[in-house]
Design a protein around this nucleic acid. Structure first.
Length: 623
RNA sequence: GGGGCGGUAGUUCAACCGGUUAGAGCACCGGCCUGUCACGCCGGAAGUUGCGGGUUCGAGUCCCGUCCGCCCCGCCA
């Protein structure tokens, strides 16, 4: 608990000048605001209950609304716990009533009075505190407030630009208070889960060394070393491996990470990971810990009990059936392989794709009458944005006939094989993807998500958590070389090591992802703990030993210093919070987020700095 | 870097095919009102139609540019 304690509890109640006068004309006569004095909150607004009736209570907060009936005045007072009604009656407390006439929305008050039960017909069933009200005896106006730019309510529709510009008022809305509270609850749960498994929290530097790999770095110029720069960490990956070598078996950290890349709804350039790493473990040990952490988080934050163990989905299978390595399995649509049944097809689109080593796959959609010809045309446009050259489709009519621009290119055998493989029935539509495998997965995977949402083909489960395993260690670059799929220190499966020499592209890695409702919650792997293996892998990616040592020498040296087998994981903490709190984008679970163009519209960062500051850092701006 | 959607009062929106003085709800300000909780009633103020240029007798509306917000592609282990 963090309790703010004023240095002097009974400071003399000095009148505070109200300058410049704000608020309505009726207030202009009020030249002073009230001191808090010795008055202290006894109850949070949202926490007074019928059990407290008869007590004298003191509540503090912001004015949500004032309803002035000429005689009696009602004020809804809000703090982060909720809302309570405060009543001012001219005959009960004339002075407080007099002052209450000046009150406006969002003013800051402390009110003391008796908690009373409301008359039956005055109970507000929509309010947790609706059975009671505070009959004010004393009112102190602690501050006035400018008129808020929008109403401080959950239901109001506000443009996000306005919300971000007036972040204080946005954050006052109960829904935002709840979301940040959920984020807090999640942080506490994750910490507790790690602690109870014996992991210890260690901080790593924010001023770190630039890395050429991966995302663009944020650079911080060094004053002491002009011309040299720190980089903000993209993740604590290297540092946590160092900690394993140093013997801190079992580490975690809620780590700030920075990547200078363009923003998305689910990507902020500054974000938080629950980073963790263990020594002397295999994949099962890490996955079990991740299950433990995830299950506990759902229990602690939402009171939801997830089923264990989580499914483990093979990467190849995920890509085939769902077209994604983070499948939304609650959508009841699945992709089917058609390459084999179309191997001898004369239809050019299919035969050309297969001849060049690609695949043909289909996405069958049952009961697709709602999909109009126009919808299919639009889906084709969508498919093109994801790399498809076009989108072939077939609609199965009520009489079983095929309505399709491509039906005439297919033989009866091919049609019946497709029907059987895809389980086609009257009313089905099937969409075809024919291209390189990567493109087909991407296109059909995206269409599956879009159609699942549009046609509401969800199976009704609120949560689906699973691991994806069996990722390749390498992937092909555009010029045909091999590069790491995730990061350079991922270990291959032990029984795959021999393949490094013979067929490296096929080597399966120890990498694993945790997927929640089609969102990648985090990823991890076992790491190479021996420098000879690490060097072999770097060699496959084209690094000579000298180049490898130049670039990754610190890691290779560390491995040689007696690195234990180790592996770990990093949760995307902001995404996790968003899933549990609800909301449209990461901005809804971050107190002060950046806009799409990487600015903070509230504080107006980034900003220019004055010349002296640059000079001190040895920097000069280019024209 | 590219594509899409949007920008009119504090705010959420309207304004027909380019045509009179750019309207409405909420908020705000003033007055009235002793049981409201979306309080009510009467009255009022409030606009560089994001910005700049162009077309036109006439532009919120059409065209070009630009800025801002959001979504997506590229990018992001």
């Amino acid at each position: 608990m963090c309790t703010f304690r004023p240095r002097c509890r009974d400071a003399p109640p000095a009148p505070l000048p109200l300058t410049p006068p704000r608020g309505p004309a009726s207030l202009r006569g009020l030249t002073t605001l009230d001191p808090l004095g010795a008055l202290r909150r006894t109850h949070a607004c949202g926490e007074v209950r019928a059990g407290d009736i008869g007590e004298t209570v003191t509540v503090c907060g912001w004015v949500r609304t004032r309803r002035d009936h000429g005689g009696v005045i009602f004020v809804d007072l809000r703090d982060r716990s909720g809302i309570v009604q405060v009543v001012f009656k001219p005959d009960t407390a004339p002075e407080a009533h007099e002052r209450a006439q000046a009150i406006r929305n969002e003013w800051v008050l402390v009110a003391r009075g008796r908690l009373e039960r409301r008359e039956n017909d005055a109970v507000n069933p929509n309010l947790p505190t609706g059975e009671v009200e505070v009959l004010a005896e004393e009112l102190r106006i602690l501050n006035t407030a400018t008129t808020p730019p929008f109403e401080i309510e959950d239901e109001v529709v506000i443009d996000e630009a306005v919300r971000l510009e007036h972040r204080i008022h946005d954050l006052r809305r109960p829904v935002m208070q709840r979301r940040l509270r959920t984020r807090h609850d999640l942080a506490q749960s994750l910490r507790a889960a790690c602690c109870e498994r014996g992991l210890i929290e260690i901080e790593t530097p924010v001023l770190a060394r630039a890395t050429p790999e991966g995302a663009r770095d944020f650079l911080v110029p060094s004053r002491v070393h002009p011309g040299s720069f720190y980089a903000l960490p993209q993740s604590p990956q290297i540092m946590k491996q160092m900690l394993m070598v140093a013997g801190f078996d079992g580490y975690f950290q809620l780590a700030r990470c920075f990547r200078d890349e363009d923003q998305r709804a689910d990507r902020q350039l500054e974000f938080t990971q629950l980073d963790l790493e263990l020594s002397f473990v295999g994949m099962d040990d890490v996955l079990e810990l991740l299950e433990h952490i995830t299950v506990r988080a759902f229990r602690d934050v939402l009171g939801v009990e997830l089923a264990r163990p989580f499914d483990r989905l093979d990467y190849r299978e995920a890509m085939l059936r769902y077209g994604s390595d983070k499948p939304e399995r609650r959508i009841e649509l699945e992709i089917v392989e058609l390459s084999d049944v179309l191997a001898t097809s004369d239809f050019k689109v299919f035969s050309a794709a297969l001849a060049s080593g690609g695949v043909v796959r289909g996405l069958p959609i049952p009961e697709a009458d709602a999909l109009t010809r126009g919808d299919l045309d639009r889906l084709a446009e969508t498919a093109k944005t994801f790399g498809a050259k076009g989108l072939a489709w077939v609609r199965v009519a009520a009489d079983g006939s095929w309505q399709s621009p491509i039906a005439k290119f297919l033989t009866d055998d091919e049609r019946s094989n497709i029907s059987e493989r895809a389980g086609l029935q009257p009313g089905h539509v099937i969409l075809f993807g024919a291209d390189r495998e990567k493109v087909v997965c991407e296109v059909l995977g995206r269409l599956r998500l879009e159609l699942g949402a549009r046609l509401d083909r969800y199976d009704g489960r609120p949560w689906d958590t699973h691991f994806v395993v069996g990722f390749p260690l390498f992937e092909q670059t555009d010029d045909g070389k091999l590069t790491y799929m995730h990061m350079p220190f991922v270990a291959p499966l032990e029984n795959e090591i021999d393949k490094l020499d013979t067929n490296p592209a096929e080597v399966i890695a120890t990498h694993y992802d945790l997927v929640l409702n089609g969102v990648e919650l985090g990823s991890g792997s076992l790491r190479n703990h021996r420098s000879d293996l690490q060097l072999r892998i770097l060699a496959i990616m084209g690094y000579s030993e000298q180049e490898a040592r130049d670039r990754f020498g610190f890691m290779l040296d560390a491995l040689d210093a007696g690195a234990p087998p180790h592996g770990g994981f990093a949760f995307g903490f902001d995404r996790f919070a968003l899933m549990l709190a609800g909301g449209q984008s990461l901005r809804d679970v971050i107190a002060f987020p950046k806009t799409q163009r990487a600015q903070d519209s509230f504080t107006r960062s980034p900003s220019r700095v004055d010349a002296a500051q640059l000079r001190e850092l040895g920097l000069r701006l280019r024209e």
